[in-house]
Design a protein around this nucleic acid. Sequence first.
DNA 1: GCTGAAAAATGATAGAA
DNA 2: TTCTATCATTTTTCAGC
Lengths: 161, 161
Amino acid sequence: MTAPAQLDSVDLAILRALQNDARITNRDLAAAAGIAPSTCLDRVARLRSCGVITGSATKIDPAALGRPLQAMLFVRVQPHRRELVDPFVQHALAQPETRAVFHLTGPDDFLVHVAATSAADLQRLVLDEFTARQEVALVHTTLIFQQWDGGPLLPPRVSRP
Amino acid sequence: MTAPAQLDSVDLAILRALQNDARITNRDLAAAAGIAPSTCLDRVARLRSCGVITGSATKIDPAALGRPLQAMLFVRVQPHRRELVDPFVQHALAQPETRAVFHLTGPDDFLVHVAATSAADLQRLVLDEFTARQEVALVHTTLIFQQWDGGPLLPPRVSRP
DNA sequence: GCTGAAAAATGATAGAA
DNA sequence: TTCTATCATTTTTCAGC
């Protein structure tokens, strides 16, 4: 499943194109990678079975959906034990506002990325769904002015056979 | 382009399925939404032209790619002026380790999500690519133990015609 | 919003470089 | 391994209703 993944420049081209557009046709993907369509199918299947490709997702604009206010919630859990960590994560993921949850090192244990419908919705989320919980010692809320997606994630080194 | 987007329960089903798997066939998507395939095509085209759907991406496992160490960099820029903000963001996005950049309210101006190949790579990134820059006053580095993707992002209210 | 026929893409196969 | 070529099947498209 999770091999060290020896990737060459063809895999790199495939990964670059697929991260940019998950719905690219196999024909176009093969052309972008400079290989035959049948070979391209094999390559993608291999990347999938190696665990490099884990899935695909359609990207959505939260503002266009009616969720114009995004924020980061820094959450401190007390005590910081596994019995409390797992339920907290599940509860955070169960909120419709939650986009992602990160378990971090440092004074703040969790970072929760949320997309709220309004300041009132954000306030309710923080007070009723997070601060109100027994294990939550502290929530620090920060608004997101703007965000940018990084380019395609690529392997640090490419084997050149 | 960016209309208030009046979405009904069919759009909601489409958005849910598409966020879960961008490569779902239109046939299966139509079945999931309970409409005819041709109607489904129209709906998706409308969601795209309304700006709700902005694109698609294949999901990659950074660890399988050789980037097992993810971190959040909290960056303070001094002075916090637009002439310095834009170049900083461009430089952050130009790094192969960068997954996302957030411009935040609060004492830390930016949050940069990165995927490094090793602790040495992370150290180099922080010291040589961020701290070394004139406008960067402070970088605080936090490791990511684990992360979870939220469920599909859905509109807060659904019009019921 | 639906139906159905035409067009295109896919996935699989076999054989050769 | 990878490529070329082929083909049945599935999927998308685009009329018209």
